[in-house]
Protein backbone atom coordinates (compact mmCIF):
# COMPACT_ATOMS: atom_id res chain seq x y z
CA UNK A 1 0.00 0.00 0.00
CA UNK A 2 2.83 2.35 0.86
CA UNK A 3 4.43 1.53 -2.45
CA UNK A 4 1.20 2.34 -4.27
CA UNK A 5 1.08 5.79 -2.72
CA UNK A 6 4.63 6.33 -3.80
CA UNK A 7 3.62 5.56 -7.41
CA UNK A 8 0.54 7.69 -6.93
CA UNK A 9 2.46 10.78 -5.91
CA UNK A 10 4.99 10.14 -8.65
CA UNK A 11 2.25 10.19 -11.33
CA UNK A 12 0.69 13.27 -9.78
CA UNK A 13 3.94 15.17 -9.84
CA UNK A 14 4.75 14.15 -13.41
CA UNK A 15 1.32 15.21 -14.70
CA UNK A 16 1.50 18.51 -12.88
CA UNK A 17 4.52 19.42 -14.98
CA UNK A 18 2.22 20.49 -17.83
CA UNK A 19 -0.15 22.58 -15.81
CA UNK A 20 -2.19 24.33 -18.49
CA UNK A 21 -2.80 21.09 -20.41
CA UNK A 22 -3.64 19.35 -17.15
CA UNK A 23 -6.31 21.88 -16.29
CA UNK A 24 -7.68 22.05 -19.82
CA UNK A 25 -8.01 18.27 -19.93
CA UNK A 26 -9.66 18.21 -16.53
CA UNK A 27 -12.02 20.93 -17.69
CA UNK A 28 -12.72 18.87 -20.81
CA UNK A 29 -13.61 15.85 -18.70
CA UNK A 30 -15.86 18.04 -16.63
CA UNK A 31 -17.60 19.35 -19.75
CA UNK A 32 -18.19 15.85 -21.14
CA UNK A 33 -20.04 14.93 -17.99
CA UNK A 34 -21.74 18.32 -17.94
CA UNK A 35 -23.25 17.71 -21.37
CA UNK A 36 -24.89 14.56 -20.08
CA UNK A 37 -26.19 16.44 -17.06
CA UNK A 38 -27.53 19.28 -19.21
CA UNK A 39 -29.29 16.76 -21.44
CA UNK A 40 -31.09 15.39 -18.39
CA UNK A 41 -31.92 18.88 -17.20
CA UNK A 42 -33.53 19.80 -20.55
CA UNK A 43 -35.52 16.58 -20.67
CA UNK A 44 -36.87 17.14 -17.18
CA UNK A 45 -37.90 20.67 -18.14
CA UNK A 46 -40.49 18.92 -20.28
CA UNK A 47 -41.25 15.77 -18.30
CA UNK A 48 -41.74 15.64 -14.57
CA UNK A 49 -40.71 12.01 -14.12
CA UNK A 50 -39.46 8.98 -15.98
CA UNK A 51 -40.56 5.51 -15.00
CA UNK A 52 -41.89 7.05 -11.77
CA UNK A 53 -38.56 8.59 -10.74
CA UNK A 54 -38.47 12.33 -10.15
CA UNK A 55 -35.66 14.53 -11.47
CA UNK A 56 -33.82 14.60 -8.13
CA UNK A 57 -34.10 10.86 -7.68
CA UNK A 58 -32.73 10.27 -11.17
CA UNK A 59 -29.84 12.62 -10.36
CA UNK A 60 -28.86 10.53 -7.35
CA UNK A 61 -28.62 7.41 -9.51
CA UNK A 62 -26.69 9.41 -12.12
CA UNK A 63 -24.21 10.76 -9.56
CA UNK A 64 -23.68 7.31 -8.06
CA UNK A 65 -22.85 5.84 -11.48
CA UNK A 66 -20.44 8.65 -12.27
CA UNK A 67 -18.69 8.48 -8.92
CA UNK A 68 -18.38 4.71 -9.13
CA UNK A 69 -17.01 4.95 -12.67
CA UNK A 70 -14.56 7.74 -12.02
CA UNK A 71 -13.24 6.20 -8.79
CA UNK A 72 -12.67 3.00 -10.65
CA UNK A 73 -11.10 4.76 -13.61
CA UNK A 74 -8.74 6.75 -11.43
CA UNK A 75 -7.33 3.57 -9.92
CA UNK A 76 -7.87 1.13 -12.76
CA UNK A 77 -6.53 3.29 -15.57
CA UNK A 78 -3.55 0.95 -15.89
CA UNK A 79 -5.89 -1.69 -17.34
CA UNK A 80 -6.94 0.72 -20.04
CA UNK A 81 -3.36 1.14 -21.16
CA UNK A 82 -2.80 -2.59 -20.93
CA UNK A 83 -2.89 -3.26 -24.72
CA UNK A 84 -0.03 -0.77 -25.00
CA UNK A 85 1.91 -2.45 -22.23
CA UNK A 86 1.49 -5.85 -23.88
CA UNK A 87 2.22 -4.54 -27.35
CA UNK A 88 5.54 -2.94 -26.49
CA UNK A 89 6.72 -5.80 -24.34
CA UNK A 90 6.61 -3.79 -21.12
CA UNK A 91 4.59 -6.56 -19.52
CA UNK A 92 7.61 -8.89 -19.61
CA UNK A 93 9.34 -6.53 -17.22
CA UNK A 94 6.30 -6.60 -14.96
CA UNK A 95 6.41 -10.39 -14.80
CA UNK A 96 9.98 -10.59 -13.61
CA UNK A 97 9.47 -8.20 -10.71
CA UNK A 98 8.70 -9.75 -7.33
CA UNK A 99 5.32 -8.11 -6.90
CA UNK A 100 1.76 -9.01 -7.81
CA UNK A 101 1.11 -8.39 -11.56
CA UNK A 102 -2.26 -6.75 -11.09
CA UNK A 103 -0.76 -4.37 -8.56
CA UNK A 104 1.99 -3.37 -10.95
CA UNK A 105 -0.39 -2.86 -13.86
CA UNK A 106 -2.51 -0.60 -11.69
CA UNK A 107 0.44 1.38 -10.47
CA UNK A 108 1.77 1.86 -14.01
CA UNK A 109 -0.74 4.60 -14.76
CA UNK A 110 -2.90 6.93 -12.74
CA UNK A 111 -4.87 9.48 -14.71
CA UNK A 112 -5.64 12.56 -12.65
CA UNK A 113 -7.36 14.53 -15.38
CA UNK A 114 -10.26 12.13 -14.88
CA UNK A 115 -10.93 13.99 -11.67
CA UNK A 116 -13.01 16.39 -13.77
CA UNK A 117 -15.77 13.82 -13.95
CA UNK A 118 -15.45 13.20 -10.24
CA UNK A 119 -15.93 16.87 -9.42
CA UNK A 120 -19.04 16.86 -11.58
CA UNK A 121 -20.43 13.78 -9.82
CA UNK A 122 -19.85 15.27 -6.38
CA UNK A 123 -21.51 18.53 -7.45
CA UNK A 124 -24.57 16.70 -8.80
CA UNK A 125 -24.80 14.62 -5.63
CA UNK A 126 -24.60 17.69 -3.39
CA UNK A 127 -27.28 19.35 -5.50
CA UNK A 128 -29.59 16.32 -5.44
CA UNK A 129 -29.17 15.09 -1.84
CA UNK A 130 -31.23 17.74 -0.01
CA UNK A 131 -33.78 18.15 -2.82
CA UNK A 132 -34.58 14.48 -3.30
CA UNK A 133 -37.15 14.42 -0.51
CA UNK A 134 -35.36 11.42 0.97
CA UNK A 135 -35.06 11.37 4.75
CA UNK A 136 -31.32 10.77 5.10
CA UNK A 137 -31.13 8.41 8.04
CA UNK A 138 -27.88 6.60 8.82
CA UNK A 139 -28.92 3.40 7.10
CA UNK A 140 -29.71 5.28 3.88
CA UNK A 141 -26.37 7.07 3.95
CA UNK A 142 -24.72 3.68 4.43
CA UNK A 143 -26.61 2.31 1.41
CA UNK A 144 -25.49 5.27 -0.70
CA UNK A 145 -21.85 4.69 0.24
CA UNK A 146 -22.26 0.99 -0.47
CA UNK A 147 -23.65 1.77 -3.94
CA UNK A 148 -20.66 3.91 -4.85
CA UNK A 149 -18.09 1.55 -3.39
CA UNK A 150 -19.50 -1.64 -4.91
CA UNK A 151 -20.16 0.18 -8.18
CA UNK A 152 -16.52 1.16 -8.38
CA UNK A 153 -15.56 -2.47 -7.81
CA UNK A 154 -17.89 -3.75 -10.55
CA UNK A 155 -16.42 -1.26 -13.04
CA UNK A 156 -13.01 -2.34 -11.83
CA UNK A 157 -13.94 -5.92 -12.73
CA UNK A 158 -15.01 -4.78 -16.19
CA UNK A 159 -11.70 -3.00 -16.75
CA UNK A 160 -9.94 -6.19 -15.67
CA UNK A 161 -11.91 -8.27 -18.21
CA UNK A 162 -11.04 -5.71 -20.89
CA UNK A 163 -7.36 -6.10 -20.06
CA UNK A 164 -7.63 -9.89 -19.91
CA UNK A 165 -9.04 -10.01 -23.46
CA UNK A 166 -5.88 -8.38 -24.72
CA UNK A 167 -3.87 -11.41 -23.62
CA UNK A 168 -5.54 -13.15 -26.57
CA UNK A 169 -5.93 -10.30 -29.04
CA UNK A 170 -3.09 -7.85 -28.16
CA UNK A 171 -5.31 -5.06 -29.53
CA UNK A 172 -7.91 -3.47 -27.26
CA UNK A 173 -11.48 -4.49 -27.93
CA UNK A 174 -13.84 -1.66 -28.58
CA UNK A 175 -16.97 -3.65 -27.85
CA UNK A 176 -16.07 -3.63 -24.16
CA UNK A 177 -16.80 0.10 -24.29
CA UNK A 178 -20.48 -0.72 -24.52
CA UNK A 179 -20.25 -2.18 -21.03
CA UNK A 180 -18.05 0.52 -19.51
CA UNK A 181 -18.66 3.86 -21.23
CA UNK A 182 -22.07 2.70 -22.37
CA UNK A 183 -23.42 1.82 -18.94
CA UNK A 184 -21.92 5.01 -17.55
CA UNK A 185 -23.61 7.19 -20.17
CA UNK A 186 -26.94 5.39 -20.08
CA UNK A 187 -26.75 4.98 -16.32
CA UNK A 188 -27.88 8.61 -16.16
CA UNK A 189 -31.37 7.10 -15.94
CA UNK A 190 -32.28 4.31 -13.50
CA UNK A 191 -31.79 1.07 -15.43
CA UNK A 192 -35.35 -0.06 -14.80
CA UNK A 193 -36.49 2.61 -17.26
CA UNK A 194 -34.97 0.73 -20.18
CA UNK A 195 -37.34 -2.20 -19.86
CA UNK A 196 -37.15 -5.77 -18.71
CA UNK A 197 -34.54 -7.16 -21.08
CA UNK A 198 -31.90 -4.58 -20.25
CA UNK A 199 -32.69 -4.80 -16.54
CA UNK A 200 -32.25 -8.60 -16.50
CA UNK A 201 -28.98 -8.31 -18.37
CA UNK A 202 -27.69 -5.71 -15.93
CA UNK A 203 -28.79 -7.83 -12.98
CA UNK A 204 -27.53 -11.28 -13.88
CA UNK A 205 -24.73 -10.73 -16.41
CA UNK A 206 -23.08 -7.40 -15.59
CA UNK A 207 -24.59 -6.56 -12.23
CA UNK A 208 -24.67 -2.79 -12.51
CA UNK A 209 -28.40 -2.61 -11.78
CA UNK A 210 -27.58 -4.09 -8.38
CA UNK A 211 -25.58 -1.01 -7.48
CA UNK A 212 -27.90 1.54 -9.08
CA UNK A 213 -31.53 0.57 -9.73
CA UNK A 214 -32.43 -1.75 -6.83
CA UNK A 215 -30.82 0.21 -3.98
CA UNK A 216 -32.25 3.40 -5.51
CA UNK A 217 -35.72 1.90 -5.11
CA UNK A 218 -34.91 1.47 -1.42
CA UNK A 219 -33.50 4.98 -1.07
CA UNK A 220 -36.57 6.68 -2.52
CA UNK A 221 -38.79 4.56 -0.33
CA UNK A 222 -40.51 2.52 -3.04
CA UNK A 223 -39.63 -0.61 -1.10
CA UNK A 224 -38.70 -1.41 2.50
CA UNK A 225 -37.13 -4.75 1.80
CA UNK A 226 -33.60 -4.97 3.13
CA UNK A 227 -32.50 -7.20 0.27
CA UNK A 228 -32.84 -4.22 -2.10
CA UNK A 229 -30.64 -2.17 0.21
CA UNK A 230 -28.02 -4.90 0.35
CA UNK A 231 -28.10 -5.65 -3.39
CA UNK A 232 -24.75 -3.89 -3.97
CA UNK A 233 -23.03 -6.54 -1.85
CA UNK A 234 -24.34 -9.25 -4.16
CA UNK A 235 -22.75 -7.51 -7.12
CA UNK A 236 -19.32 -8.27 -5.70
CA UNK A 237 -19.71 -11.90 -6.80
CA UNK A 238 -19.03 -10.53 -10.28
CA UNK A 239 -15.41 -9.90 -9.32
CA UNK A 240 -14.67 -13.62 -9.01
CA UNK A 241 -15.11 -14.56 -12.68
CA UNK A 242 -13.34 -11.34 -13.69
CA UNK A 243 -10.35 -12.17 -11.57
CA UNK A 244 -10.37 -15.80 -12.73
CA UNK A 245 -10.51 -14.69 -16.36
CA UNK A 246 -7.53 -12.42 -15.85
CA UNK A 247 -5.53 -15.26 -14.25
CA UNK A 248 -6.56 -17.53 -17.10
CA UNK A 249 -5.37 -15.00 -19.65
CA UNK A 250 -2.14 -14.54 -17.74
CA UNK A 251 -1.37 -18.26 -17.99
CA UNK A 252 -1.84 -18.05 -21.74
CA UNK A 253 0.38 -15.04 -22.08
CA UNK A 254 2.90 -15.12 -24.85
CA UNK A 255 5.22 -12.20 -25.19
CA UNK A 256 4.97 -10.21 -28.42
CA UNK A 257 8.74 -10.35 -28.35
CA UNK A 258 9.45 -6.70 -28.97
Amino acid sequence: MKLYFKYFSMHLRSQMQYKSQFFLSTLGQFLVAFGTFLGLQFLFDRFDNVGGFSYEEVLIGFAVMMMAFSTSELIGRGFDRFPLLLGNGGFDRVLVRPRNEIFQVLASQVEFTRLGRYVQAVAVLIFALPRSGIDWTWDKIAVLCLMILCGALVFFGLFMVYAAFTFFTVQGLEFMNILTDGTREHGRLPFGVYGDGILKFLTYVVPLALIQYYPLLYLVGRTDEVRFALAPLASLVFLLPCWAFFRFGLRHYKSTGS
Partner: peptide, 10 residues
Protein backbone atom coordinates in the same frame (compact mmCIF):
# COMPACT_ATOMS: atom_id res chain seq x y z
CA UNK B 1 -5.24 18.17 -26.44
CA UNK B 2 -7.25 20.47 -24.23
CA UNK B 3 -8.81 22.50 -27.05
CA UNK B 4 -9.72 19.26 -28.78
CA UNK B 5 -11.44 17.90 -25.73
CA UNK B 6 -13.44 21.04 -25.04
CA UNK B 7 -14.53 21.22 -28.67
CA UNK B 8 -15.44 17.54 -28.61
CA UNK B 9 -17.57 17.73 -25.48
CA UNK B 10 -19.17 21.14 -26.01
Amino acid sequence: GGTRMIMASG
